[in-house]
Design a protein around this nucleic acid. Structure first.
Lengths: 333, 333
DNA sequence: AATCTTTTTGAAAGCGCTCCCATAGCTGAA
DNA sequence: TTCAGCTATGGGAGCGCTTTCAAAAAGATT
């Protein structure tokens, strides 16, 4: 089933069918009707591959994320997709599960698809990959990772400041023995949050700080972290999590261990995913505007007509503290 | 950057480069090395569109789901993807948000991509679309929807039986005033669950049954449903949810209304998503093996060499009851 | 050294589309 | 009637690849 079949049936040339389908150039309305009829009757759908190949254009964007299971990433994907659909673009995602191996494979696959733009929302970027991307001839947006590179726009979230606000808030509530729960320590944007925590603790309550890193970014990871902390003998009055998704597991495990939140322990997350309003207790967190980020990504990857494509830029976003039920005054002596 | 550039640099023909890249045909090892070197130096990635166009083959599968935000769908996607990657296939997903409009657009987009196979995990299928898919010349799998069609494999979950087990279990605990919470009533597989509930109630405890349908498949939807039920004056001792994802909101709202679970009200979900072990209390549900379903989808879409492609078949899966903390004996008088 | 194999390579024809360029209708003015 | 000036169409090259077919190169055999 191809253009020629349609052309034959409508008794026109393939050029005309193409014109009708793309709504470009002049076509007599009677001819157009005939073509559309043939298209419908044959249940024809243009071969996208041939289209991109011939036209050199592509209305699909690529997006690579670390963990689609974490609602944070999913939300960004959905926001980008919504914006894309509004402009008749499509988005194809790839998930890496924080595995560098997969990252590479995904990026290469994406490059093979020759997308109109590529968004990298991953924590495990490597400098060499950044170089490769800068060399690829398409617009690239990266999320909060690595140094600024020519041809690559960087959307940054001020995690440091967010963590600082959070730590200060807990400190003001009287908390001194705090623990930090994270995953995949070594990765850029994640280590920023951890470092920020460690620095704050050093400044606020020297020598009292505990950091756990587990292998998975999930509630199960959060649960495991709590077990580790308690097994070590450390009894924090507050636990700060690298994100909300892990905090869900932290809340659950604390309860399993007979500790009440926020009575015995305060818990904070990060991201403000929608589930944060459904946990018991609801979760104190820092809001990161995924909606806005998704939109920003689209605007960067598909620059509006007229406005020239920036070579590279940097966008900074500030997290906003959202206080809910999971945090309260420190009651420990 | 194309095959010819590589060929020129390696001083061979494009045919040879192609042979090396696809690992077919005989190529002298010294030549192969030269080609690979050129590929590396140019950072070349084959144009997938040209590949599919020329080769007529495609190693990517399409998948359309109703709500990627619901972990149930995401799990199936991830299972399918894992299996696909194992066989060097890729998966591209499209999300419909239960909107027929989007469904159509997604399917057409997929057809344009000429995937090796298409999996439809959507509740909002229409017969006409089924016909169109049966006519398309690719393997199609649909999840639990519509009548069996030639050329289309149907993976069915015995929701009716699952709901029956669940209702009977609650009945045995003494519950009589039960409510059902769902969304998008009219859609096939969803209405099965509802109908099953209604039928069971009719058999077990005639005239005491309450059904709410809200617009979104999400915790927020679950919350809204509880508000509606309570606003109506009905005081159920058990709430059965169409899935776990909505049950999360139900649990939260019941607590907000001062009702304890399972003390005052028992709650059940369906699917056994991993979050069901992290809610407070943990959620009684029915397990649906997403892992297995993902695998099954792959095997159906990409039939192994040798085994002939079945024209159409039907696969049936039985849910398994998972009793956790959210259900208990009815204490009401 | 001549001939026959076998291995290795290249030339070129598509794959299904877009888009440029040329041609064919048509309208109305001269 | 003729021709400029449109509007509508068709022809065909080319997008980057795979794949067949044939030819060249390299060994093997006598």
């Amino acid at each position: 089933m191809n253009l020629e079949d349609v052309a034959k049936r409508a008794k026109v040339s393939t050029a005309t069918v193409s014109r009708v389908l793309n709504d470009v150039g002049l076509v007599k309305s009677s001819t157009r009707a005939r073509v559309l009829k043939a298209v419908r009757e044959l249940n024809y759908h243009p071969n996208l591959h041939a289209r991109t190949l011939a036209g050199g254009k592509n209305r699909t964007l690529g997006m690579v994320v670390s963990n689609l299971e974490n609602p944070f990433f999913l939300d960004i994907f959905r926001a980008l997709e919504a914006e894309a659909h509004r402009h008749k673009y499509e988005v194809v995602v790839a998930n890496t599960d924080y595995r560098p191996q997969r990252l590479l494979a995904s990026v290469h696959n994406m490059m093979g698809r020759r997308p109109a733009g590529l968004a990298m929302i991953v924590s495990e970027m490597e400098p060499s990959l950044m170089d490769e991307l800068a060399g690829a001839n398409i617009p690239v947006v990266v999320y909060d990772v690595g140094a600024t590179k020519p041809n690559i726009t960087n959307i940054r979230v001020n995690y440091g400041k967010g963590m600082e606000k959070m730590a200060r808030y807990l400190h003001d509530l009287g908390h001194r023995r705090m623990a930090f729960v994270g995953h995949h320590t070594s990765l850029g944007p994640l280590s920023v949050r951890k470092k920020s925590f460690v620095d704050m603790m050093a400044a606020l309550t020297p020598e009292i700080e505990f950091t756990t890193m587990v292998e998975t970014d999930s509630p199960a990871g959060g649960r495991q972290a709590v077990r580790r902390i308690l097994a070590s003998g450390f009894r924090p009055t507050a636990v700060m999590c690298v994100n909300d998704y892990m905090a869900i597991g932290v809340l659950r495990e604390l309860r399993d261990q007979g500790l009440s939140v926020p009575g015995d322990v305060s818990v904070t997350g990060f991201d403000n995913i929608s589930l944060a309003e459904f946990t018991i207790p609801t979760l104190t967190t820092a809001h990161i505007p995924r909606e806005k980020i998704g939109k920003l990504i689209f605007e960067t990857l598909v620059p509006e007509q007229g406005r020239g494509t920036e070579t590279s830029q940097e966008i900074l976003i500030d997290p906003v503290l959202m206080v809910r039920e999971s945090t309260g005054p420190c009651k420990a002596n």
